[in-house]
Amino acid sequence: MRDMSLHILDIAENSVRAQATKVDILIDEGEISSFMIKDNGKGMDEETLKNALNPFYTTKTERKKKIGLGLPLLKQNVELCDGKFRIESVPGKGTSVKWTVNTSHIDSLPVGNIEETVWILMTMYENCDFSFTHRAGKKEISIESRELKEALGTDELNDPKVSMIVKDYIKEQENIINNQEAL
């Protein structure tokens, strides 16, 4: 993956597949940036958790080739830049994936286009609610897909028109984070 936003999109899909109804995503940018994806899905037992970082393990039974690269790829990219990677899971409660990156390290991946990732997660996964918090320095934004659904009066955020309204809003919010103070 080219950047963290693509990893987040990929890892959050695991949560949805684990029947999560709520996924919290947190990005805290700084010299050491930290990331978290936490869900209330079915969780993993010790054995599954141990295997989750093995690239030749997947729980997807429909697959002929037994490959699950999502988490191993992320862990590799985190460790390449002196970051820390941690995954915790409680069966029946949920799973959380946390990692940090040293942003001054030459191999550290940029955050990337996080607004696209958040937009796709919030609009394309109907049965799951997402909350997204993004901090950078003193700035902080927070977006809740449940609140968006209520404001829009529909759960079907994947309607192209509705989806574009959501996209504009997320973009607006991300601009608050990204706009540098005028010098």
Partner: peptide, 8 residues
């Protein structure tokens, strides 16, 4: 949220 509702 109000702005979003109006757009909708």
């Amino acid at each position: 949220l109000k702005k979003i509702r109006e757009k909708m």
